[in-house]
Simulated assay, not measured.
Amino acid sequence: MTNKEVVASDDGVANKWYIIYPQYINTNLSLYKGRRLAKTECVTDPKSTEIKDVLESLNCFQVVCDLNKVYSREVDKELIQNRGYVKYALIRNKQTEEVIVGNKFDDKKKVLEYVAKMIPKLKTRTKVNTQQSGSQQSQQSQSQTNKKNKKKK
């Protein structure tokens, strides 16, 4: 299935499928390597599963995640940590009509901006950040005590 393939939904309105690769919102990449947004709006090393979680939480997208695919601009395709892509289509029904009428997700760029804002708020990201900051603080305190001990000798 391609990203422009049309699928009919339950109420007869046709939906297009769009694809999001994690490289589209990665701050560590340049525009040439595939980043689509400004660095200030992007996230460091997003994963396709995180993008999937954000889109599924809205309940107005039909989401499919494929972890075996690789972005075409990747140089070393065997050692990639952020593999895969997320394919999504907007579901048009009575429950999601408010979101659609508000023009919140008119185009792919608005969806990318929303995903980039919401990924840092995921529980998996906050747990990782607190563990890293805790280990960094303990390393800093150890290095400070080592410096003090060296001065005393």
Rank of each mutant, 00 (worst) to 15 (best):
S9M: 06
A38G: 03
E5T: 15
A89N: 08
S9R: 07
N68K: 12
I19L: 08
S9Y: 08
I20T: 01
T44A: 05
G34I: 01
L90F: 05
R83V: 10
Q62N: 15
K94G: 00
T27R: 13
S143Y: 01
E97Q: 12
A8V: 15
S9G: 15
N93F: 00
M1E: 09
N68H: 15
K117H: 06
V13E: 05
R92L: 06
C42I: 07
A116G: 04
I19N: 08
L122Y: 07
D45G: 00
I51C: 03
G102T: 06
E56I: 11
Y21I: 04
T2S: 14
N59P: 01
Y88R: 07
V54Y: 07
V54S: 11
G34Y: 01
D45L: 05
N26R: 08
S141N: 07
Y88F: 13
N26D: 15
T126E: 13
V63K: 08
V6Y: 02
R35V: 00
K39C: 08
K94N: 04
K69H: 07
C65G: 01
T2Y: 11
G134A: 11
D66V: 12
Y85I: 00
P46L: 02
K127V: 06
Q136C: 02
K94I: 11
E113I: 12
L58V: 10
L67A: 06
A116W: 08
C60L: 15
D45E: 09
V86T: 08
V128E: 09
K77I: 12
P22R: 06
Y32R: 06
Y24P: 00
G102Q: 13
Y114G: 03
D11L: 10
R73H: 05
K117C: 07
Q140H: 03
A116E: 00
L37F: 00
E97M: 13
V6W: 04
I91F: 03
Q23L: 03
E97G: 01
K87D: 07
C60G: 14
S30T: 09
K94S: 07
R35A: 01
Y71C: 04
K69E: 15
R83H: 03
V101P: 00
L58Q: 12
V99R: 08
D66S: 10
Y85M: 09
T96N: 15
I19G: 03
W17Q: 08
K47L: 14
T130R: 14
F61K: 12
Q81W: 06
R125Y: 03
I100L: 12
E78C: 08
N68T: 14
Q81S: 13
W17D: 02
I20S: 07
T27K: 14
D10K: 11
D10G: 11
I80G: 04
K117S: 09
E74M: 05
Q23M: 02
N26I: 04
V64F: 10
R125C: 04
I51N: 07
Q95Y: 11
M1T: 12
N3V: 09
S135I: 05
T130D: 11
T2P: 11
E113D: 02
K127P: 00
C65N: 15
D76M: 11
T27E: 09
E97N: 09
Q131K: 09
Q81T: 07
D106H: 05
S72H: 13
K108N: 03
Y18V: 01
M1W: 10
V128R: 15
